[in-house]
Simulated scan of single mutants.
Amino acid sequence: MKAQEKKFSRKSPPERSARMVESIYGCKWSLTVYQLLASGINRPGEMVRQVEGLSTKVLNECLRRNMEFGILERVAFDESPPRVEYRVTPFGGKFCGCWTSWKSCSRSWSEKREFETRRPVRF
């Protein structure tokens, strides 16, 4: 018998992509920030005022991390007093779309598990 030829090699995610997902998913505030931006709240001070438990320091770390990965961009306006806003980049829009898909998948999985664990009622 001939040894079977291997057609596929093991694939691993690109290091930067894996680190990005892990870092963003590990930050409990990133999804909240995306939700705020989607609802039109894009200034850091307003974000802190809208979310209970979110401090300026933690928000700035979260925003910085998202900018490093190219998910968000910072827009500084030449005004007095200074004004800064954050926006989702085109790449960030795709990334947030992935979150939406994962959320839908998770919901489907939960519903499936709930249905499977129900016991038939016996009379």
Rank of each mutant, 00 (worst) to 15 (best):
G26Y: 03
R83H: 06
N66S: 11
G97Q: 01
R65S: 15
I41L: 14
L31H: 03
R87P: 05
I71M: 05
P90K: 07
R64L: 10
G70Q: 02
R65G: 11
F91R: 05
K28F: 08
S39M: 02
G92Y: 01
C62S: 13
W29L: 07
A76S: 11
T89N: 03
S39W: 00
V84Q: 04
S101L: 14
V84T: 06
Y25A: 12
I41A: 13
S108R: 15
P44A: 15
R87A: 13
L37Y: 02
R43S: 12
G97D: 02
W102A: 15
C96A: 04
S80E: 08
S30C: 15
E52Y: 10
F77Q: 11
C105A: 15
G97E: 01
R113W: 05
L59F: 12
Y86N: 05
K94P: 00
P44R: 13
Q35D: 07
S108V: 09
V84S: 03
M47L: 09
K28Y: 08
L59V: 07
E68Y: 07
Y25S: 10
V33S: 01
S30Y: 07
G53Q: 02
W99M: 13
K103V: 04
T89M: 06
L36H: 02
S80W: 11
G93L: 05
R113K: 15
F77L: 14
W102C: 10
